[in-house]
Design a binder for these strands. Structure first.
Lengths: 128, 128
DNA sequence: CGGCGACATGAGAATGAGTCTCATTTGCTG
DNA sequence: CAGCAAATGAGACTCATTCTCATGTCGCCG
């Protein structure tokens, strides 16, 4: 069933995501890989990022500009981010209160099958 | 300075946004306008939506699929949405708790100049 | 009322992220 | 080692959005 192969390319993608801790677009990761000598086709970068995201291994979100940005996250569970809009560095944050509030509110309005997005952007201490 | 002209096209856009209360993409609003006989160029629809959004007259957010969707909102102030992912209908929701929580958390991490996005998607009572 | 200048419009070209196709390469398992 | 299915990558393609630029239109001034 899970005929999951381990290719050089997939390892290169995972590994570069782990070396850098910030959110970057597929195109940026692709460029970084090329610079580092570990060339990987753009299509493969997209495919791999998507697979990893589906697995929950990495996190995706949309930058204010509307493009998808990816990063490796330590916590496997559900969490949100506090992202520096200048340098891309991100903190993982837990938001139990918010979880509770959204699900209560949604229920109050008769909504079911609820999901939510919450991202916080700002300027980190270093970039101020 | 404010050489703001009132054109038929801009009125048509504003007006159709007000007649329907849901989130739709620029392309969809454009199609609706055409159907209603009030044809407006696609580029103009984009321009007008963007202007209205900048003014704060309408709200923009990104659908899960990644395209920008727009809708006229009654409340001028800051608020969030509970959006039906099937029919696009949306409720405006206030989230004082969440506002407080995000700003407190961001401050705790040394972040400044903080903004946030919060959107809740689900299936409304009618669409369940 | 006719003219003028600036802003607005719209058709189509251009851009750019992301996806798809398909011939080729490459882990893996026997 | 052989064979096959999965993975790759170059490039074509899609599709939302933006840009360009020729033309239209609003509002004012004399």
């Amino acid at each position: 069933m899970s005929t999951r192969r381990t290719t050089r390319q997939q390892q290169a993608v995972s590994s570069i995501l782990e070396r850098h801790g910030d959110f970057r677009s597929a195109q940026e990761w692709h460029a970084l890989l090329r610079e580092s000598g570990e060339a990987v086709g753009l299509a493969t970068v997209y495919r791999t990022l998507q697979t990893l995201a589906d697995e929950g291994t990495i996190d995706v979100l949309r930058s204010p500009a509307g493009e998808a940005v990816y990063r490796a996250c330590s916590s496997g569970g559900h969490h949100h981010h506090l992202v520096c809009r200048r340098c891309g560095r991100a903190e993982e944050i837990e938001a139990a209160e918010v979880e509770r509030w959204t699900s209560a509110t949604a229920t109050a309005y008769g909504f079911t099958d609820v999901t939510h997005t919450l991202e916080v952007f700002g300027r980190c201490a270093d970039c101020s």
